[in-house]
């Protein structure tokens, strides 16, 4: 484990904490995409199936459980919490799951390193994670008055991806035979998805204005 990887994971964790705190403190999930959260739940479930078969480290196991637990908590709040669910922007969060899930599933059936259930689901989770933020970005574009915390949540998620790329470069340079092309390409695609958001986020921060994305 190198510093970039640790910082990446901590940024990812922080992004989820920011989202949990925002929803819990304001009793509102305004501007948060349930579709993105549910896609992340699918990503984590498919990827962390090895929780039961392959022990890597205590760190790894604890982080996986936290990611699963926090994502399901957010989904539960948004769907069932008496006060919070009323604040969900149902009519604006209209991105269709199948546009992302079906292509990723097909791609994982074709492009994988081993044709087994575990490996295909794991690969599917890698592809799906790359595009899972799209419903959130679309919702953000539609919502005026994006609150700072939602903007920070997305900024932290994008930063986590950028740090993972640095982690891969570091590992490539220091570990013999370290290669994972599918993961690298998906990760680069995932980071590119955030570039537009980063541009507007940094611009609004420099100009001391509220974040808004052009339609």
């Amino acid at each position: 484990m190198n510093l970039f990887r640790l910082l990446g994971d901590m940024t990812h964790l922080l992004s989820i904490i920011v989202l949990l705190l925002k929803i819990n403190a304001t009793r509102s999930c305004r501007g948060v995409s349930l579709k993105t959260q549910e896609l992340y739940a699918i990503v984590f479930v498919c990827r962390y199936l090895d929780l039961f078969t392959n022990f890597i480290s205590l760190y790894n196991t604890v982080m996986k459980v936290i990611f699963l637990g926090s994502t399901f908590t957010i989904i539960y709040w948004m769907r069932f919490h008496k006060v919070i669910r009323v604040t969900y922007d149902r009519d604006q969060d209209t991105f269709r799951y199948q546009f992302l899930i079906i292509p990723c599933l097909l791609l994982s059936l074709i492009l994988n390193s081993e044709f087994t259930v575990m490996e295909v689901l794991w690969t599917f989770s890698i592809y799906l994670e790359a595009v899972a933020i799209l419903p959130q970005l679309v919702l953000l574009q539609r919502t005026n008055n994006i609150d700072n915390l939602t903007g920070n949540y997305i900024f932290l998620l994008g930063s986590y991806r950028a740090l993972y790329i640095l982690n891969w470069i570091y590992r490539f340079l220091t570990e013999p035979n370290y290669r994972q092309y599918l993961v690298w390409i998906s990760g680069i695609v995932q980071t590119i998805v955030y570039i537009d958001f980063f541009y507007y986020y940094i611009r609004s921060w420099k100009n001391n204005e509220k974040l808004s994305l052009p339609a």
Binding site: R5, D9, N54, S57, N60, E114, N177
Partner: peptide, 10 residues
């Protein structure tokens, strides 16, 4: 192996 190694990332 390689497959197990990949999965040390979250």
């Amino acid at each position: 192996g390689m497959a197990a190694k990949q999965k040390d990332e979250l």
